[in-house]
Computed example of a mutant assay.
Amino acid sequence: MNRNPLTKKGADGLREELQRLKSEDRPKIIAAIAEARAHGDLKENAEYHAAKEQQGFIETRISDIEQCLGAAQVIDPATLDAEGRVVFGATVSLARIDNDETVRYQVVGDLEANIGAGLVSVSSPLARALIGKEEGDSVSVDAPGGKIEYEIISVEYL
């Protein structure tokens, strides 16, 4: 079975979401369905159909999260000893060579990726270029706007 990498923080976030879905959202939607059902004819009951659709979304999300967690290889970056190399879970500070703009990203699993939050997928071109490199190394990334050159300023395991 192929195990998908997930940071400890990402796994904890999914567990929290799963708990909320099961203990809060699911009971609310069950109550909403019961209330809508009490209004009578279900064929033309928009509240009932909307609640049933919402229930489907919740149940699908619960199933998806349970599958993801079941197939995940949880890695705690704080316990890594990669001798300064960029590996899964590492947080990397980069300086763009052409304009000295600095950015900071953590290399995470596909499920956790959120570039706006500084979380870059391990399968992204940027992460693939960074893996195995060390502080002071330069990397070139093929981006939609052309090649971007970065210098690695620091590598941390938080």
Rank of each mutant, 00 (worst) to 15 (best):
G89Y: 02
A72Q: 08
E151N: 15
T102Y: 06
K52T: 01
E149M: 14
G109Y: 03
A32C: 02
L80F: 04
L126K: 01
P125A: 10
A38V: 05
E66I: 05
V74Q: 10
K147L: 15
S140N: 09
E53W: 11
T60G: 09
A95W: 09
E135F: 02
L111P: 02
K133S: 03
G56N: 06
F57C: 07
A36K: 05
G40I: 04
D25G: 06
E35Q: 10
D110V: 15
D98M: 11
C68P: 06
R128V: 05
I115A: 14
V92S: 04
A82M: 07
V122H: 15
K147T: 14
A72E: 07
D25H: 02
I153S: 11
K22T: 07
V141S: 08
P77D: 05
L130H: 03
E53P: 00
R104S: 15
E59N: 01
R85M: 08
A90M: 10
I148R: 13
A143H: 14
Y150A: 15
E53T: 12
E149C: 14
G84F: 02
G145W: 08
T91R: 13
G56K: 04
K147V: 13
E24W: 06
Q54N: 11
A117I: 11
Q73V: 06
T91H: 12
L42A: 12
A50Y: 03
V87P: 14
E151T: 14
A95Q: 12
D81L: 03
A31F: 00
D25W: 00
A82N: 08
A113S: 10
S123N: 12
E83N: 14
T102M: 11
N99V: 04
I58N: 01
S140I: 14
V141R: 05
V120A: 10
P125I: 03
G56L: 10
G109P: 03
K133Y: 04
P144D: 13
L130V: 00
E101L: 10
D137E: 06
I75R: 07
H39L: 14
N99K: 11
K43M: 09
G136D: 08
V120T: 10
N99R: 12
